[in-house]
């Protein structure tokens, strides 16, 4: 039984799983590699926020049209630096403000992002994140 258990691989992070699937590691960064890495970083963020943290407001009139953009900065160890910001938040009201609140809550709830094991050598690529929360497909 113990031998069996030993055969179970250690849990891989989302980025590691994606890297395994999408391409070889340990190569000099070419433009294509950067693109591939960037894609897997994006996919990792999507998986985490969509799967674990975003609880969009439903049932509001035109709930599917409430699109919100949130920006935030990350430290090298995946923590949010400062506060996440929703575009035009100060001018928002009603259901749109509530949609922005749900997006900000998702970003904060998912933090820190250290479990994504984002590649440190590409920190410049992911230190600033812009998320567009668009519920139109799920709440039309």
């Amino acid at each position: 039984m113990a031998a069996l258990l030993n055969k179970i691989p250690e849990k891989l992070s989302i980025t590691e799983r994606l890297a395994e699937r999408f391409g070889p590691k340990e190569q000099k960064a070419t433009s294509l590699d950067v693109q591939r890495q960037t894609m897997s970083i994006k996919a990792a963020f999507r998986l985490k926020i969509e799967g674990e943290c975003w609880n969009p407001p439903s049932g509001a009139l035109d709930a599917g049209k409430l699109i919100v953009v949130v920006n935030f900065n990350l430290s090298q160890d995946g923590r949010i630096i400062g506060q996440p910001r929703a575009d035009d938040y100060a001018r928002m009201s009603g259901p749109l403000k509530v949609a922005a609140d749900s997006a900000l809550r998702a970003v904060r709830m998912c933090a820190p992002y250290s479990d994504l094991k984002l590649p440190k050598d590409m920190y410049d690529q992911w230190k600033e994140i812009k998320l567009t929360f668009d519920p139109s497909d799920m709440l039309s």
């Binding site: 960037t38 970083i41 994006k42 963020f45 999507r46 926020i49 969509e50 975003w54 609880n55 969009p56 920006n71 997006a103 998702a106 410049d124 690529q125 992911w126 600033e128 994140i129 812009k130 998320l131 567009t132 929360f133 668009d134 519920p135 139109s136 497909d137 799920m138």
Partner: peptide, 10 residues
Amino acid sequence: AVIEIDITKG
């Protein structure tokens, strides 16, 4: 660069 990601499910 800023990484831009669309979040479309929740």
